[in-house]
Nucleic acid binder design. Structure first.
Length: 144
DNA sequence: GCCAACGTTGGC
DNA sequence: GCCAACGTTGGC
């Protein structure tokens, strides 16, 4: 079981939008970066990740779950670009800011910190649990 | 709004 | 296959 982080600018696609589409989920489209695409290819239905608001907010705001394996991104004509489907699972009671993440020595290896431009990235289980705790969320609940 | 870091493109 | 030029991301 792997854990992930999905980054989105809230004025383009926010966690609120994500919640509105419900359990049907929605393709995580628009990714045009090989590294990010390759991580999506590794994802399996049922795996969970953080929903992170970049630019505005700069915080982890909720938990999402992968509902479909990688398939063609319908917003691109180019068959190279694929994406998974995700659905919103629960809110982070207290959003965890990038500032707080950077201030936590145990999170210094997070991809969010070491490669801030990667929009889809893996998260270690220890990192996942710790951020849940920082956000007031029981890690067991978040992990499903 | 700026700019550093990074990724991609295309000429050679 | 190299690398300069360019475009984009995202923190500040």
């Amino acid at each position: 079981m792997a854990f992930w982080l999905f980054k989105s600018e809230p004025f383009k696609w926010s966690f609120e939008h994500q919640k509105q589409v419900g359990d049907a989920g929605q393709q995580w489209d628009g990714v045009r970066n090989y590294q990010a695409r390759n991580f999506m290819r590794e994802m399996k239905p049922g795996e969970r990740g953080f929903f992170y608001h970049s630019n505005e907010g700069k915080e982890v705001v909720g938990i999402v779950e992968v509902t479909a394996t990688a398939h063609h991104d319908t917003t691109s004509d180019d068959p190279r670009w694929e994406c998974v489907d995700v659905k919103a699972v629960m809110d982070m009671p207290m959003p965890v800011t990038l500032e707080a993440i950077k201030a936590e020595p145990r999170l210094s290896e997070m991809v969010l910190v070491t490669n801030s431009r990667l929009s889809v990235q893996p998260v270690q289980m220890s990192e996942f649990k710790l951020i849940c705790e920082m956000g007031g969320l029981d890690p067991k609940k978040a992990m499903g």
